[in-house]
Design a protein around this nucleic acid. Structure first.
Length: 803
RNA sequence: GGACCCGUGGUGGAAUGGUUAACACGUCGCUCUUACAAGGCGAAGACUGAGAGUUCGAUUCUCUCCGGGUCCACCA
């Protein structure tokens, strides 16, 4: 029997990680046709180079599931991918190497991402995650591009993807279209200016009209002035037109969306100052004036103003100066305003009309919700994030981005025929800007699409990527839909939403059976972890201080699903102490079972107290299994820990010690029975915990290993065994615990040492307990140090201790 | 403005339509007994945010309010 590790730390853990990898312990068995397949559509993390605690929590969750499922007879398919292409990488690579031609730049991004993946993969392995790395995918690989492009072509053919000119969120700083989910809000101080317009009543009579605006620089794009229909100040005027401060004549109309309490109750509609302007433009069929170019510079202003080409702020200053001179600027007041900014560069976003590629999600909202409802959501309320989003989403999904490091959109454009030309499926993957193509109709040279896909276009086909959709039909049938989709609750409306939409659309089937949602990990102070607050907890530091299994126990105990939870050093400290206890108890058990192999015959000599603890084990195993079926890691871990520490260690080990050291020939039956129980209980606890604490369980399992290269992870998960349960042994077990507790309490009250002998024990017992007393007398004497026992009949249990 | 989640001892957090509301950390005593002082034993500490209702009985169900959080919409 190999000696146990002195401590269960990161060294023991990495030892086992290497062994597991060498033995390819977690491989999915493609050839196995008997075991049911359990496939996990794991989240591909963005390749930032570092895992954060949110990853750790989420990935621990499904690693628990993967390990549990393997032990319960499933052929677990657990691939891991990487979401590579994204704006932050471009930013970092540009910072490091400067601007480069697209193809060279792309290569640098791939290289950079490769090193990031290396680091993150090492972190995952240090945490004991049991992915099958043979199936790793990277969204930047040609094979992945091929998949994404194939999916786009198919959706283009079915009319789900189209090119169109629509108002989109536009980042002038990054010069790219954005989806709503790429935006966030920022508060800022701005000025609200009252500017003098005029209204023109019937017959050409003019009077002053005051308009409040924060964006005077867009005034040349003003196409209407609106007021609320019930606003008495304006609805009686019967005016048809307004004259802007720049002198243009625009319609003067009523609209229910105008807030009569804001400013002067009238609003100028500029195409486009904000989203409301877009709504109004379509509603009132207003003309469109493009006021800004793609860099956010003013265009289309009257020459006389000479603001064309100026930045927004410069143009604003210039115009205000002009209005002031003309007496049209009546006042300027500070205004606290919330504006949309790009979540990557934090610069303000504009709305712009632009040619982009779209996916028709607005048509499909009901189908998406229906597909989502066909899955099991854990916890159930999490589906409401998706339903809310589906019911309110107003615009189609902009899937094109004006970036370099992304999946190229497989299209060309013929300006003569005015048509988009898709790539031929046979030539995928394609990068249009590097290819010359002629129009199949008119044979003129085609313009390549230079935009790339939004990163969610890549990640929303992860279930298809892992199931080899379009590549290996048999494999696809076996692994799609994924049994489990684990993910963070904050990306339900992006990753889950787009994945359900796209996969349903492409395959006609919903992509998952169950979804398991996790919340965010907050800093110990309950706030969001952020660099600026300096409250970030790094997994690497926790690994060296506490080890992977402690982190995993922390994750398992980390509260309810889909709820944010502060990180707790108390919890992880408890986890570490628990592992220490597990090891130390293991040392005693090892001594006890040295050279012992369990035989059924030994079970016939079990003492009632042994039976009681085997019965308790049975209950714990039952509850653990039921908790697993609901993914209640906390309940599963808790019930096992409580039993192990506060029943098995605190009581049972004390009860049986004397039997372990027994040498008398006539007591060997009793000794072997104790060995049998110790062996059974301890090894079962290790197995119960194996999915949570794979390293500790493996290390300690070695005392039971009977063959070379045995691993606890190749064994079956414990199932309840009730044959040792009997009412009499339960009464005996509870009675003994009650008496022992009373003795300890009395010793403590009298400040006696715990090993002080008990001269006499006077018990008053009801019939049931009195009948059980002979079963536990031996334990009372040997483990409790009781010298004399007296028992009288009584209705209730009474215990008197004499020292 | 709308939706959802939540409010339990000093702290973090379980659980339940019904006997003294887990557990951990922390605190206070005692204790190095040959698996473990990163341990053992004992103790103190919660009228489960406020109010009302349903009920024989609510911390658990309903409503209102207060407080915290998340998401969505809008902000001329």
């Amino acid at each position: 029997m190999p000696p146990l590790a002195d401590r269960l730390d990161i060294n023991t853990e990495s030892k086992w990680q290497k062994v597991w990898e060498e033995r390819q312990l977690y491989n999915f068995d493609e050839k196995d046709k008997k075991k049911p397949i359990y496939s996990i559509d794991t989240p591909p993390p963005f390749t930032s180079g570092d895992l954060h605690m949110g990853h750790v929590l989420s990935y621990a969750y499904f690693d628990f599931v993967a390990r549990y499922k393997r032990m319960t007879g499933f052929n677990v398919y657990y691939p891991q991918g990487w979401d590579c292409q994204g704006f932050p990488t471009e930013t970092k690579v540009e910072q490091k190497y400067g601007r480069k031609p697209p193809e060279e730049f792309r290569k640098l991004c791939v290289e950079w991402t490769g090193t990031c993946i290396e680091r993150m993969r090492n972190q995952m392995q240090s945490l004991g995650f049991s992915a099958d790395w043979r199936y790793q995918y990277r969204t930047m690989d040609p094979s992945y591009h091929k998949l994404v492009q194939k999916s786009i072509l198919q959706m283009y053919d079915s009319g789900q993807i189209y090119r169109g000119e629509h108002p989109v969120f536009w980042c002038p700083s990054c010069r790219s279209a954005l989806a709503k989910t790429d935006t966030e809000e920022a508060e800022r101080q701005t000025q609200l200016h009252d500017i003098k317009f005029e209204i023109e009543s019937e017959g050409g009579k003019k009077q002053d009209l005051i308009i409040a605006t924060t964006r005077p620089e867009l005034m040349h794009a003003c196409v209407a002035v609106l007021y609320h229909p019930t606003d008495a100040r304006y609805n009686k005027l019967k005016a048809k037109h307004a004259i802007t401060a720049l002198g243009s004549r625009v319609p003067f109309k009523s609209d229910p969306d105008v807030d009569p309490a804001f400013g002067s109750g009238v609003v100028m509609v500029c195409t486009f100052g904000d989203k409301q302007d877009v709504v109004w433009m379509y509603r009132h069929k207003l003309p469109l004036i493009k006021a800004l170019d793609e860099r956010g510079k003013i265009i289309n202003a009257p020459e006389g103003l000479s603001i064309n080409g100026l930045s927004i702020t410069d143009a604003r200053a210039k115009l205000l100066e002009k209005f002031k001179l003309e007496g049209k600027l009546l006042s300027s007041k500070p205004l606290q305003q919330v504006i949309k900014v790009h979540d990557r560069c934090k610069k303000p976003i504009e709305l712009a009309l632009s040619w982009q590629w779209f996916a028709r999600i607005t048509q499909k909202r009901d189908e998406i919700v229906k597909a989502a409802r066909s899955m099991r959501w854990l916890p159930p309320f999490a589906i409401s994030y998706l339903e809310d989003w589906a019911n309110y989403v107003e615009w189609d999904w902009v899937i094109s981005r004006q970036r370099v490091f992304g999946t190229p959109l497989p299209f060309w454009y013929c300006s003569k025929c005015d048509k988009s030309i898709p790539a031929d499926e046979k030539e995928l993957p394609v990068n249009p800007p590097t290819m010359e193509k002629k129009c199949p109709k008119c044979h003129s040279a085609l313009t390549p699409e230079t935009s790339t896909c939004d990163c969610w276009v890549d990640s929303s086909v992860s279930p298809l990527a892992i199931s080899k959709w379009g590549v290996d039909e048999k494999f696809f049938k076996r692994t799609y839909p994924a049994s489990l989709r684990p993910q963070g609750v904050e990306i339900v409306r992006t990753w889950a939403f787009y994945t359900i939409y796209r996969c349903q659309e492409l395959t006609g089937k919903p992509p998952f059976v169950e979804l398991l949602l996790n919340g965010n990990v907050l800093a110990p102070d309950g706030k969001k972890m952020s660099k600026s607050l300096g409250n970030i907890i790094a997994p690497d530091k926790l690994l060296t201080d506490y080890g992977a299994d402690s982190i995993r126990i922390w994750a398992a105990l980390s509260g309810a699903m889909a709820k944010d939870r502060p990180f707790s050093y108390q919890d992880i400290q408890y986890a570490k102490s628990f592992l220490h206890k597990l090891l130390n108890a293991g040392k005693l058990v090892q001594k006890a079972v040295e050279g012992y192999e369990p035989k059924d015959n030994d079970a016939t000599h079990l003492r009632p107290i042994d039976r009681y603890f085997l019965h308790r084990l049975h209950s714990v195993v039952s509850e653990a299994n039921s908790a697993w079926s609901e993914y209640e890691f906390q309940r599963m871990t808790k019930v096992t820990q409580e039993f192990f520490w506060h029943e098995f260690c605190d009581y049972y080990l004390e009860y049986v010690k004397y039997r372990i050291y027994e040498t008398a020939a006539d007591k060997q039956h009793s000794r072997r029975a104790a060995q049998y129980a110790l062996y059974t209980i301890y090894s079962t606890v290790l197995k119960l915990l194996a999915p949570i604490t794979p390293h500790a369980s493996e290390e300690l399992w070695q005392m039971f290993a009977t063959k070379e290269n045995d691993s606890i992870h190749l064994h079956s998960y414990p199932t309840p065994v009730s044959r040792f349960s009997s009412p009499a042994s339960v009464i005996a077990g509870l009675l003994l615990a009650g008496i022992m507790a009373e003795i300890r309490q009395q010793k403590s009250a009298r400040k006696l040492p715990l090993n002080a002998p008990v001269k006499g024990l006077k018990l008053g017992l009801p019939a049931e307990q009195a009948a059980a007393l002979p079963h536990i007398e031996e334990e009372l004497k040997m483990a409790g140090g009781v010298q004399m026992i007296e028992c009288t009949d009584s209705d209730a249990i009474s215990i008197e201790v004499e020292f």
